[in-house]
Design a protein around this nucleic acid. Sequence first.
DNA 1: TTACGTGATGACAGAGACTGACATCAGGTG
DNA 2: CACCTGATGTCAGTCTCTGTCATCACGTAA
Lengths: 188, 188
Amino acid sequence: MGRWEPDARGRLAKAALELYAEHGYEQTTVAEIAKRAGLTERTFFRHYADKREVLFAGAGELEDLFVRAVADAPRAAVPLDALTVGLDAVAEMFADRREFARRRHAVITANAELQERELIKLASLAAALVDTLRGRGLAEPTASLAAEAAVAVFKVAFERWIAPGEERAMRQLIRESLTELKAVTSGV
Amino acid sequence: MGRWEPDARGRLAKAALELYAEHGYEQTTVAEIAKRAGLTERTFFRHYADKREVLFAGAGELEDLFVRAVADAPRAAVPLDALTVGLDAVAEMFADRREFARRRHAVITANAELQERELIKLASLAAALVDTLRGRGLAEPTASLAAEAAVAVFKVAFERWIAPGEERAMRQLIRESLTELKAVTSGV
DNA sequence: TTACGTGATGACAGAGACTGACATCAGGTG
DNA sequence: CACCTGATGTCAGTCTCTGTCATCACGTAA
């Protein structure tokens, strides 16, 4: 056995989600999270930049996955179709984590600071998509608008996917949201 | 003359923007802002909920203006046209404040925490637009997608409007961004 | 085996954001 | 003149987050 219990980072994330869910984000102190994980407050801040970031460790991977899928989409694909390839990749990644996503999202929805962090992660995703679309030859401001549209579709589809009782696959909800977006922007 | 210098709130906002621009947001303490405004730190927090909010006092008015314009758009107007009425109202409100908007936006762009706050203000705007569109009879998720699209158009047009050397009116940039959005979502 | 470097953690002090409670006091009101 | 009100000041305290130094199991090389 090593000197320390393994996976300190994961233990902190687990303790934080539990405590945020049990007592609320604001009512939970970092010292409490660290204690439940068998560590000290100082060590928490070595693993996570701040008290919010502990809920968003997976955002980078989601961004990488999305971006890579868009970049690898057929060169002939129209921007929105390339973005759809990325959306499908994200849907697949989430597929078997619906309950975890529900718990996590309930915590975030209950607190404005956490929503802010979620929004900037989505903004970062949008910015990365803009770069990728530009790399595919799309000009501004079209690239920004297409990226924002794709993120909007993701947001809407995700919220529907985690709605209580919802059982349809995220991929299907993404398809429906894309269709709705096309309809509403075509001025019907 | 009254017991206190007038417009404490405005003095705090002015001092904060100046100091954030001069030394950066993080390097500025609330005590310094209060001192420049001739007040104490405690009084700052009576006027603004936190150190960031002092830059976003106008967000509520922008939201009200936008929402009211959409609500008052002709009943026959298609969602995107109603939203365009709102965008035009916002453009008019900004018209004579381009230099102030540039200074303020430069401060926000330089700091992630301030960007988070900006994003949640835009999310609040989007949520208010959803309510308004629902009031006009639009169903979900179409209402959410239309609102997100309108906010995306605003973001893109605003950024172009404050770009160095840009002199075109915001209304025109909004028109162009709307056209781009329609093109990209129609799959061209 | 011994000496040394490395990396994850702990301990501690301190700055700064934010809050609650109470004090102050000019101006209005009866 | 007594009283109330509202904006501000003062002070103590909690919590987030950071810098710095100490600790110590483990791996590596002489």
